[in-house]
């Protein structure tokens, strides 16, 4: 267990549509006594778009953020957004293995007037990995004031937390490590907070987030499948750990209802919101009212928030 503060990289989505994730992550860290220091003057990671212009630009964008963390003296940077996390990990991988990527990043960093990031100097963690490492299930269990007992949760991880496998060398390392085919870190944490996790086969299925607006019919189909499957598995709530997945599920839940006439009632909450409430924080404090999917009545009925 380590309680050293980490650099916190919220990313663009957490300052906009994913604000509730930003808020609940900070509140959760606070309640657990874990230190977060926001990365100074960070830039966008390029999400899933910049790589389609040129993948090495995405590597540069993430390398700049890693260089800031290095400069600030942090050996760990933590990102709650799957996109940000994925891109930092991808940059780390490319800078370790690909000479051309190194050259491009060095050249661009020099022109932009900052030190080029040296591969291997900063460790990137997802908020899930950070919580598992810094507090763990036992630590969490000891702090639970308001158990999530009886709440049936489908844990949804999306694409970028586990794929492609090669950029996550620390995963799939046997007991204790995260699995790329059947991730369980969120399941572990929520179970420690008392939630009843349902067997959800679509943990790492795609929500169509990359084309959520440019090909919304495809996204609606994919999301509807995620929602109806969660309901068929008996879930009250889908727990998310990515702002793109989260807003995709929320938006296309409404779109499926309005455009296809398919109404689903499963609620969508960030796992940080659920953990926060288990620690006794109010629903408002973890930003439940900022979600589009309105789970206030359900939470109230279960004595949460």
């Amino acid at each position: 267990m380590t309680n050293r503060p980490v650099a916190y990289y919220p990313g663009c989505a957490l300052e906009g549509t994913g604000h509730a994730y930003h808020r609940s992550t900070k509140e959760l860290a606070n309640a657990l006594g874990l230190g977060l220091v926001e990365l100074e003057n960070w830039n966008c990671c390029g999400a899933m778009e910049v790589k389609n212009i040129d993948p090495k630009l995405q590597t540069y964008l993430s390398a700049r953020n890693l260089a800031i963390s290095e400069k600030m003296g942090f050996e760990t940077v933590m990102a709650p957004c799957n996109g940000c996390y994925h891109n930092l990990k991808k940059a780390e991988y490319d800078l370790t293995h690909d000479k051309t990527s190194q050259e491009v990043v060095e050249r661009l960093s020099k022109k932009a007037g900052h030190a080029a990031y040296r591969a291997g100097s900063v460790r990137t963690l997802h908020v899930l990995e950070w919580l598992k490492e810094a507090i763990g299930e036992e630590g969490l269990k000891a702090r639970v004031k308001n158990s999530l007992k009886g709440l049936k949760v489908a844990n949804y991880y999306g694409c970028m937390y586990t794929r492609p496998r090669h950029i996550f060398p620390e995963k799939d390392k046997g007991p204790g490590s995260e699995s790329t085919s059947k991730p369980h870190f969120m399941d572990d944490l929520l179970a420690a907070a008392g939630a009843e996790n349902v067997e959800y086969p679509l943990k790492t299925a795609c929500c169509g987030g990359a084309h959520t607006l440019s090909d919304s019919d495809t996204s609606t189909k994919l999301v509807l499948n995620l929602l109806t499957t969660a309901e068929a598995c008996g879930a009250d709530v889908i727990a998310t750990e990515c702002p793109t997945c989260h807003s995709g599920l929320e938006m296309h839940q409404v779109r499926a209802e309005k455009v296809l006439g398919r109404k689903t009632t499963v609620k969508i909450l960030y796992f940080t919101q659920l953990l926060g409430m288990a620690l006794g924080l109010s629903a408002r404090k973890v930003g439940v009212h900022e979600n589009i999917s309105d789970s206030r009545a359900l939470l109230k009925a279960r004595g949460l928030g």
């Binding site: 830039n43 966008c44 910049v50 607006l213």
Partner: peptide
């Protein structure tokens, strides 16, 4: 295609300002 237009708009914002603002992007 729409996805290419989205990529362009998104990237143009990042390249110009370093960050994106979702409202304007939309």
């Amino acid at each position: 295609k729409p996805s290419a237009i989205f990529d362009e708009e998104f990237s143009a914002q990042v390249f110009a300002k370093g960050r994106i603002e979702e409202g304007r992007l939309l």
